[in-house]
């Protein structure tokens, strides 16, 4: 009994500081976001009017918001799929294959993740430059003959979102690769040896051993993908295209910004924030449910 009481005190003491900070700086502000989202408020004056759920009804008829939401979802889906596949393959190659300079690759691949978005954006501004000076265009120019016109990566409304996605994937591969490497290297070697003896190819080993055994880790990263794609797409777009051309690369958070500040509709901006919060939470929960499998033991 005494031990139990002691335990409860210990638990409470350990949790209290974290929960206190968390409540003050995250829970209360988030509740405030919901409260402000029911106001018509420009964000500067004391002039606030309660409008109930009006901001939300406007929101769901606002085609610009819908478009920015579609862009965001497209970004999440493509960045997740490509980054996951590439980083899984690279992780298993670096861990499992007899490759020289393993450490070198591991160290280098992570570097984009430690750069600030400003650096990455100015790098990609040079890479995507629409003139023949642009890195990608000068490479493409080698394969194309006379009369070829350069690709306007940031100017073509059909391409710009993929240009942003490209930069995001470049930035994310190393991060997820290191995560997957950690769990792949924990898989016992004898499983692969047995498979090899049974004549399983590399591909079969990858799909039948590696993937199932790190499945939980992959599921965890799905949540990270959603959270970080929403956040990073905003940062990338803000510096690289400011949502342009003509809103073609607008994401939910950049739209939140332009509404809350440029359009002086702060209450509306917070309604966007609230919707983003709820949607990402639901999305992640749904994906987590859908990907639940019985964990394989080894």
């Amino acid at each position: 009994m005494k031990r139990n009481k002691e335990k409860n005190i210990f638990v409470a003491l350990c949790l209290a500081p974290a929960l206190l900070l968390f409540t003050i700086f995250m829970v209360i502000p988030t509740l405030n976001v919901f409260y402000i989202s029911t106001l018509k408020w420009g964000g500067l004056s004391a002039n606030k009017t309660f409008v109930g759920l009006k901001n939300y009804t406007i929101l769901f008829e606002d085609m610009n918001f819908i478009a920015s939401l579609q862009n965001t979802i497209l970004i999440i889906v493509i960045v997740t799929i490509i980054t996951m596949v590439v980083s899984l393959i690279f992780a298993s190659i670096i861990v499992r294959e007899d490759i020289k300079f393993k450490n070198f690759f591991r160290v280098i691949f992570y570097i984009p993740n430690i750069l600030s978005v400003v650096v990455i954006s100015s790098i990609f501004a040079q890479i995507y430059d629409p003139s023949t000076n642009g890195l990608l265009n000068s490479i493409l120019g080698l394969f194309n003959g006379e009369g070829w016109t350069t690709i306007k990566f940031l100017g073509d409304q059909g391409i710009v979102i993929y240009a942003i996605i490209g930069a995001m994937i470049w930035q994310a591969i190393g991060y997820y690769m290191v995560m997957y490497m950690a769990s792949i290297s924990a898989i016992p070697e004898h499983l692969y040896e047995a498979a090899q003896i049974a004549g399983a190819s590399r591909f079969t080993q990858f799909t039948r051993i590696t993937i199932p055994l790190i499945w939980n880790n992959i599921r965890t990263t799905l949540t990270f993908f959603i959270i970080s794609s929403i956040n990073l797409s905003f940062l990338f777009v803000k510096v690289m295209t400011s949502g342009g051309p003509d809103g073609a690369s607008e994401t939910v958070l950049s739209y939140l910004y332009s509404q809350a500040y440029t359009n002086a509709s702060y209450g509306y901006g917070m309604a966007i924030g609230a919707v983003v919060f709820i949607l990402s939470f639901i999305l992640s929960g749904a994906i987590s449910k859908a990907t639940k499998r019985d964990v394989l033991e080894y």
Binding site: F22, P29, T30, N32, V33, G43, N231, G273, F277, S284
Partner: peptide, 30 residues
């Protein structure tokens, strides 16, 4: 294992989805 663990876990999980970009002004006002 303790009472309310699920609740705390859930709150922190939800906290993962809160983006600083929209809570910054509420924090400032506070």
């Amino acid at each position: 294992n303790f009472k309310g663990k699920k609740f705390v876990d859930g709150m922190l999980m939800a906290g993962l989805f809160v983006n600083v970009n929209y809570i910054v002004v509420p924090i400032f006002l506070m």
